[in-house]
Design a protein around this nucleic acid. Structure first.
Lengths: 185, 185
DNA sequence: GTCTATATTAGGATAGAC
DNA sequence: GTCTATCCTAATATAGAC
């Protein structure tokens, strides 16, 4: 995924921070929390990252990459527009609800004020674009309906973060169920 | 809306706090921010509320009351199950996207740790129950499908908070559009 | 690269005058 | 009921030793 000789400590910080951010939120997670999870002292983190904001921005970038990669891989072998959308939804939810991934932080977190907001918006747009295209390819949807359809689908998918618990339905089953409800004919 | 001689200062604090909480989030809003918005000094707030948590819990209770009242009023005169669900969705979104209401804080805010979480969960359940009944009344949905249908609908509705901007479609139009997508025959 | 120690600021909350 | 003044804690971040 990255270089052959990666900076292990840096990656570990990102891993633990991503978990904490998605579990408790950005604002409620302190540098002390992250340091404790990694097994470092707070000051040491600053050797790897200049600020807490920068950690979040990095996680955002990786999280969006993870979703995009998963979705694009899932749809390459599929032709039918509805099947492609379903494959994308399954991949999206699989990535999102995987507790070790960075994707949950992308959806769940939105730092209060912060100067990095523009960057995060840009990242988020990157992955919305994929769904824009997938929805545009569906038959029988007028241009004006496509936008609301996309937002409805993404809302239903992303809202799972608030209620999903492992053990019942799998993420893939949930995604297919949601698509089935939105599928016409 | 309330008593004839209400505690104006207390109500004002709640109003301003609700706006700040839904705009910037609970954690990112300080007592100093609230005090400044009200035109008080931070210490004075504590005459009206014992803690910041208590302000949020109060807003939650009122916000849920607002949604429930709006939804129940909207559905009393409607008979057909699908029409009832649509009326409920319209009322829900009208309340949610009204910038002066407390409902947005209910959906958007979730304090990091806090001991009041159980209370908030209870409040949230109160309003989910209404939709549980409305969905149960729909024809042609098997028991197992009802839960996912409800969560999909609420997800799509609540997600509007992240993208809705006044000027385009009205909340009512959005709600009807979402229902139309989920409506079978 | 990590630690010790600490600067600095902000936040929730309280005591007591008015 | 609001203000003044302040306590206490926790947070981000930095400097410099090792």
């Amino acid at each position: 995924m990255q270089k052959t000789v990666p900076d292990n400590r840096r990656a570990l910080i990102l891993d633990e921070a991503a978990k904490l951010f998605s579990a408790r939120g950005y604002d409620s997670t302190s540098m002390r929390d992250i340091a404790a999870a990694v097994g470092m002292l707070p000051g040491s983190i600053y050797y790897h990252f200049p600020s807490k904001d920068e950690i979040l921005a990095t996680i955002y970038g990786i999280g969006v990459d993870q979703i995009i990669t998963a979705v694009e891989t899932a749809i390459t072998t599929v032709d039918d527009p509805w099947d492609r959308l379903e494959a994308a939804a399954v991949a999206h939810l699989d990535t999102l609800l995987n507790r070790d991934g960075y994707a949950a932080a992308v959806i769940a977190d939105w730092p209060g004020d912060s100067e990095i907001r523009p960057r995060l918006v840009t990242e988020r747009d990157r992955y919305e674009t994929i769904f824009r295209k997938l929805v545009a390819a569906l038959p029988g949807l007028r241009k004006a309906e496509q936008r609301l359809f996309r937002l409805t689908l993404l809302g239903a998918l992303n809202w799972t973060l608030t209620w999903y618990r492992p053990g019942r339905q799998t993420p893939a089953q949930i995604a297919r169920g949601i698509i089935a409800m939105l599928r016409k004919t």
